[in-house]
């Protein structure tokens, strides 16, 4: 640990600086239908990390030469709003955001029946409005819900969480001080029905045993988040069902 603004410790009296236990997630809220213009959308709040995702498609591919004869082109754009970080972030793509867009696409693709939508594009636009670590993981959780909301056929949702090491302890769902000053950061995504890993990155310093424990801890947490994702989807569509039931008697009454 070190650097400007580094707290003296990341773990105090067996607890993290925000009071969480080592294997405790931040509070997570997912809402389906955050962008009415989009074919599918979702927003997620995970602690102070706040992200909105809009999905358009399957639709015509632009530029046209990106079209694939046998499957859909999955286009993911991860963008951080200028006001999402303490210091203003320069708008537009960066090398970091370009790489994150790519690894998010790689993590979502295994869950989507891309082969059912040849010659089309599925555009997934991710806007980070407030960043407090774990943005790619939260973006994946929201994006897979948004893709489902768009009615695109999927094998499963994709669920993700970033874990790591802070003051020598293995901790789940890093927040900013742990992300900045911790010893390791490991985002992981799975398809929760089979626990197949669709995203795995790591920076820092981990031995075999630590990697094993973090993978296990992350998979367990993803199963919890999966429940929140499913509930968010049910909430939207159950409301819509109630809406139809209410409107039916009214329609009959008009006869």
């Amino acid at each position: 640990m070190g650097g400007i603004g580094a707290p003296e410790h990341l773990i105090v009296n067996g607890k993290r600086l925000d009071g969480r236990k080592f294997d405790e997630l931040r509070p997570i809220k997912i809402k389906v239908g955050a962008v009415p213009n989009a074919d599918g959308s979702a927003s997620i709040e995970q602690g102070e990390t706040k992200i909105t995702v809009g999905v358009y498609g399957p639709r015509e591919v632009f530029p046209r030469h990106m079209a694939k004869a046998d499957r859909a082109h999955l286009n993911v754009i991860y963008d951080m709003a200028a006001f999402s970080t303490p210091e203003r972030a320069r708008p537009g793509p960066s090398r970091r955001s370009t790489e994150i867009s790519k690894v998010i696409a790689d993590s979502l693709a295994p869950a989507i029946f891309l082969e059912k939508y040849p010659k089309t594009a599925i555009d997934v636009y991710i806007e980070v409005t407030n960043a407090n670590a774990g943005t790619r993981a939260a973006a994946i959780c929201a994006a897979s819900v948004a893709i489902a909301d768009a009615g695109i056929e999927m094998r499963d949702l994709v669920t993700s969480v970033a874990s790591g090491k802070a003051d020598g302890e293995l901790v789940l769902d890093l927040f900013q001080p742990e992300d900045n000053f911790g010893e390791a950061d490991m985002p992981l995504a799975i398809m929760p029905r089979t626990n197949e890993i669709t995203l795995l990155q790591m920076d820092g310093d981990l031995n075999r045993d630590e990697i094993k424990k973090l993978v296990e801890m992350s998979i367990k947490a993803c199963q919890k988040i999966y429940g929140i994702q499913k509930l968010a989807l049910k909430e939207k569509y159950e409301t819509e069902k109630v809406g139809i039931e209410e409107s039916e008697p009214a329609a009959q009454g008009g006869k």
Partner: peptide
């Protein structure tokens, strides 16, 4: 570590 591509791995 870095995973790439559209497939998956197990633990």
């Amino acid at each position: 570590m870095q995973k790439g591509g559209f497939g998956t791995f197990t633990k």
